[in-house]
């Protein structure tokens, strides 16, 4: 494959993606792995995808930040998922999937996750919900800019947060905001709490 041919391929993809209102972009994570993230809008989408094609890792933060900010638009929310059971799925698995959209509202997040968790994984609302550890710096800034409302739930927290054990309970302290991690199904969520005494 010549270099030119490859470049042409990228262009074609970019055009394709740019034509949709919102498109998923594969962007580089801080660990060097490429992972999907959510991206909205044409212009940014092009930038991010171009960076991804070049293997640019730093574009990740920007992409994720955009995703996290995307509550007001057509972020790439998962509306349903495959079932890994024919007869053993919860009724919620079938009927509850649409609740995923409720993720736009942080305070309703818990319910959404509960209903959805069913099979497998779960909290993949494509806006910061990638489980386990991908915590771009930009997203961290977005989260800590304002104090989280106690009781609100997020799926990821910034990497700068530290784990603190108080009276046998594990907390994640992110500046002045404290979170208590919990499993909801097999997903780990972070509930904003008052600072432990």
């Amino acid at each position: 494959m010549s270099t030119q041919a490859k470049a042409t391929g990228h262009v074609a993809i970019l055009l394709l993606c740019g034509a949709s209102a919102a498109s998923a972009a594969a962007i580089g994570g801080s660990d060097g792995l490429l992972r999907p993230a959510v991206q909205q809008g044409h212009g940014n989408s092009l930038l991010i995808q171009a960076a991804a094609a070049r293997g640019g890792g730093r574009a990740a933060g920007a992409g994720q930040a955009a995703a996290n900010r995307g509550g007001g638009g057509a972020a790439h929310q998962v509306r349903s998922t495959a079932s890994s059971n024919v007869n053993h799925n919860r009724a919620a698995n079938v009927a509850g999937n649409r609740n995923v959209n409720a993720n736009a509202n942080v305070n309703r997040n818990f319910n959404a996750n509960v209903n959805r968790n069913v099979n497998v994984n779960v909290d993949r609302d494509y806006s910061g919900g990638w489980d386990d550890h991908w915590h771009p710096v930009a997203a961290a800034a977005a989260i800590t800019a304002t104090a989280a409302v106690v009781g609100s739930i997020v799926n990821t927290i910034p990497p700068s947060c530290s784990t603190v054990v108080v009276n046998g309970v594990s907390y994640s302290q992110c500046g002045s905001t404290w979170y208590q991690p919990q499993y909801a199904g097999t997903s780990v969520q972070y509930v904003a709490v008052n600072p432990p005494q």
């Binding site: 391929g9 993809i13 594969a26 490429l34 999907p36 890994s84 097999t186």
Partner: peptide, 21 residues
């Protein structure tokens, strides 16, 4: 499909368990 390959590579996990064993 350079763009899409990473998406596939970024796989999931999910699956939990099978086992029900």
């Amino acid at each position: 499909m350079k763009i899409f390959r990473p998406i596939l590579a970024g796989c999931t996990a999910w699956l939990l368990l099978a086992a029900g064993a």
